[in-house]
């Protein structure tokens, strides 16, 4: 076994893991309540996010959310168009909606709805434009 290659692989893997740490987890480490550990696990089957939802689909979803008038319609639409949590996460990232890694698909969909349709409805209510 070539140790140099193994170390290079581990290095690369650590870099990717660090880049994926979400703000919330970073804060926990900063607060000292959590620590970073290295664990070797069996590889999971790679899921190709591109196949789950394309950028065209995301743009279409984003545009639809601009014209949907109620939260309920929005949630129904997102549930029909986002088949799993990864797809919901991808839309959330596109719309800059924050979520936690442990959030369930339904919760992320709610957050997307609040950040788009909800924000628009709140704005109309506050400005008295109804």
């Amino acid at each position: 076994m070539d140790k140099k290659i193994v170390i290079a692989l581990i290095n690369e893997s650590i870099k990717i893991q660090i880049a994926n740490i979400v703000d919330n987890d970073l804060e926990k480490v900063l607060n000292g309540t959590h620590e970073v550990k290295i664990r070797i696990e069996k590889k999971k089957r790679k899921v190709n996010i591109k196949e789950i939802i394309s950028i065209q689909n995301i743009e279409e979803i984003s545009n639809t959310l601009k014209i949907v008038n109620t939260r309920e319609e929005g949630i129904k639409y997102l549930n029909e168009n986002l088949n799993n949590k990864l797809a919901a996460e991808k839309v959330a990232r596109y719309l800059h909606v924050s979520y936690l890694k442990q959030d369930k698909k339904e919760y992320i969909i709610n957050k997307i709805t609040e950040a788009t349709i909800g924000a628009r409805l709140r704005s109309i209510a506050i400005k008295g434009e109804k």
Binding site: V22, D23, L26, L95, H96, V97, S98, A115, T116, A119, R120, S123
Partner: peptide
């Protein structure tokens, strides 16, 4: 800031304001 960007929780409200 986190990596030259506002943290995600703040970015959300910045983008929300922009969208309005």
């Amino acid at each position: 800031m986190y990596g030259n960007q506002p943290i995600q929780a703040q970015q959300q409200y910045i983008e929300q304001t922009r969208r309005l």
